[in-house]
Design a protein around this nucleic acid. Structure first.
Lengths: 205, 205, 205, 205
DNA sequence: GATGAATGAGTGTTCATTCAT
DNA sequence: GATGAATGAACACTCATTCAT
């Protein structure tokens, strides 16, 4: 079986697992449930994944990355046009929050791991997403932001909004999404627009 | 058995469980391990907790609350004195991060749930902690911050620093704690000092 | 504590257990459920019963005996009057079946053990019931039935009707009570009116 | 694995369980005991039975049916020949009682459930047994018995003899099998030879 | 006599993983 | 590559019984 077919099948299994994870807690989902949904035999699962946690890890990364890429696509055109970067940022944060609200199901799966796709940041899992992100980054650099600094700030803001929204959207704890939306937007904006004088020691790249 | 003794024993079991959770993943810890560590019989466990998840829930809340209270105590004296609130805030954030670094073990247990004690925010699990927090809050109110707004901002900042530090301290992903510390401090400061004009609809209190 | 009080308390526990057994399967009922219902402490239970099976045994015997006594009372007046013993028997069988239908709840508890009170037959658990039974017996003896034989026949008939009715009333298997009622009545009548020439070896009394 | 092999294995497990049930009370037998006896792994058990009670249910039905079939075979030749049906019936009842005495072990397992194979009566669990039974039935119909009536009477008699013999053979309570044998035979004969005028409402078939 | 906290053996059931086909 | 029957360690939880107070 060539590599492509293998990858495709892997994706198919992940997708099946994801459908189940949306309705059942990950830890209450058995490999058996997954293989049944994927229409494959139990043993076949282990031809594609080392074990169950291997699947989970890959699934969360992939789904987080897909969400992020989708968001990048959506926000891209706002950034390619002209306009005040801060105003645009505010809009983007709004789009991000709306996006998360629309992804309630996905959020339940990747809870508080929305930023896990940034683990190996700033390399995204595919070229296209990487380019989209770079485009946005460049806008900030053009405005005089330090590339490393803005990189970190975006990561912080993305993680923060994801984490707070998870609790707000899924549990309304301690605030409902409506209640936290405005201060969260301001907070995210404040994070992004704050500047840090990074010292040499702050970078290991 | 009077209520106090019962509570005390419950705490003892939680403490034993906590010791194990620090060395083993929660989900790899069997009830059996816990009762052995607590020096009680298996059945006794179920006299004090409905089931395993009941213990976990209570443990995370308690440990998160204890950590927060400890932090509040530590930071309290800086706040009771005089000085620029923003400068003090910066210091506090530093203390918070240092605190988390010092709590690496605890962090592994309550991962990303550091703010779970704020779930029922702004009521803390005990009066003393509540008072400490109120004192800090008052300082901001005196400076003209809206009470509801600053409440939310602190929650956002606490959750944010906790979440970012978890990944940084435990996994150095995507940045090591040294690498992210400064921008994170600036970000937290920016969050706290940003002001939102809360509209009536933003509050349900 | 005098013997009477002790017996009374024992009865109270049995009664509480019985109430639960009517709604829950005996084997799914814990001693805990029983003591809670009886309003006593766990340990107290063991002051009155050797163990759980001791209770069950006594309960089934008692409830079966109580049912039987109640039935004997109900049927007694028909027997004290005059009339054709066979016609009366047919009536009594009808009363027995109606009685079982009315005891659906009890039946579920003492399933197929309705005749267990006759285990130590023909001695009943109390004098009154014993006398009632003797009165009926005498009528048959007067008609020329052998006392030992009619004793056995009644036992057989009682057990038979009880067993068949259990299945019919509780499960409608293989026949509903309406469907089996008439043939069962005839069968019971046939059993009672049949005569056996008991040989000396047939008795060990 | 083809369906036949699967069924065979199921039967093997039931057989192993049956061997244990004969020496230990069903409710004191753990799944563990069964799988050890069957020489299979614990998990394998659950591949063939939903749970423990699933096994018990199937076992009792099967054993009851097997016993009944064996009896039908034994009695068959007496019925295919000529002779007075009542005399033959008496003989058959005797054979049935002897059969139960010889099945003491089985009786302990299927206590008072000897007629459970007749739950879905008059369909037996296999064709052969069904045919044997039909043959006997026909003899009665030829003699002018109503088919529905004699069906019910046989069921009543079978259940009655089974129930009384269980107590007599296993516990000698309230009578030993020797003591109850003759009156029981007469009773069973009386049941079978009694005729009921079934009314339309007595049947739902 | 009464209590109820403590016990711990026992049990049914799950499920990730393997491996012969 | 694919299968799915078999595995058996692991686990959460129950519950009859005891015993110190």
């Amino acid at each position: 079986m060539d590599q492509n077919k293998k990858l495709e099948k892997k994706r198919k299994i992940i997708e099946s697992a994801y459908q189940i994870f949306k309705s059942k807690n990950i830890y209450n989902t058995a490999v058996d449930d997954i293989v049944k949904a994927a229409g494959i035999a139990r043993g076949t699962f282990y031809l594609y994944f080392k074990d169950k946690s291997d699947l989970i890890e890959q699934l969360i990364f992939l789904k987080s990355a897909e969400s992020m890429k989708e968001l990048l696509k959506k926000t891209h055109e706002r950034f390619t046009g002209s306009g005040d970067v801060f105003e645009i940022s505010r809009e983007l944060i709004g789009m991000y929050i709306d996006f998360l609200i629309g992804q309630k199901e996905a959020l339940a799966v990747i809870t508080k791991n929305i930023s896990s796709c940034m683990r190996d940041f700033p390399d995204f899992y595919d070229e296209e997403a990487g380019k989209l992100y770079s485009g946005i980054l460049e806008r900030f650099v053009d405005l005089g932001f330090d590339r490393d600094d803005i990189n970190r700030k975006i990561y912080i803001a993305v993680d923060m909004v994801g984490s707070i929204c998870s609790d707000a959207i899924l549990f309304s704890k301690p605030y409902s999404i409506e209640n936290i939306r405005r201060p969260l937007t301001e907070a995210a904006l404040a994070v992004i627009t704050s500047k840090t004088n990074l010292l040499p020691g702050d970078c290991d790249e």
